[in-house]
Amino acid sequence: MKYGVIVFPGSNCDHDAYHVISKLVGQPVDFVWHKETDLSRYDAVILPGGFSYGDYLRAGALAKFSPVMKAVKAFADEGKFVLGICNGFQILCESGLLPGALIRNQNLNFICKHVRVRVENSNTPFTSEIPAGSILSIPIAHAEGNFICDEAVLTELEENNQIVFRYCDEKGEVTKEANPNGSVSNIAGICNRNRNVLGMMPHPERACEEILGSTDGREIFRSLTNTIERLKRDNR
């Protein structure tokens, strides 16, 4: 198994993701420069957080034209796994790999704090080890995390169980007060119809060690790793 962490000019959570995969999940991982066009040696790629291209034009708007994104699309079409975190989620929406868009937080602030998210669907490769309804404590750090889509897309996301994480309070209630950025339906993370592409605003790679206040993020990487291992065993 091999992970790739894509590095765009302006990515700044690439080393955190690399650290978690290599040291805590214990799997081989490469940094993949955004000019790369061949992802065939990877089972999963992570689009990390940061400010690709300085967030110029719109967050994630210019990264979608990086050469690697064509390869990421083909990679996703093959059913391989793509995890977009924060800016990575913005890039996946801009690229059309995930529906909707992420706009400026309702309160206009850059918000950097621990939030709680409820796992809405454990039937995805990224949440297979986490029972639905679990409450995870994971930090967010963004100014453009306000997920928006039209009614039709929202209905589709709900009907296909593509909403994977929702912002919630400490009791797991999805309330307006628990919504940090104004996202429609408290959406914190969604997957595509095939469930092999996940985008989320919270940073699971920042919640993998006790010293950082939470290890809940680790469950996401553990789920994905176990899913890939299981698939590899089944294919043998």
């Binding site: 034009l57 801009e94 868009a101």
Partner: peptide, 8 residues
């Protein structure tokens, strides 16, 4: 294709 995002 570049300057606008048709979703928003």
């Amino acid at each position: 294709e570049v300057l606008s995002n048709p979703v928003i």
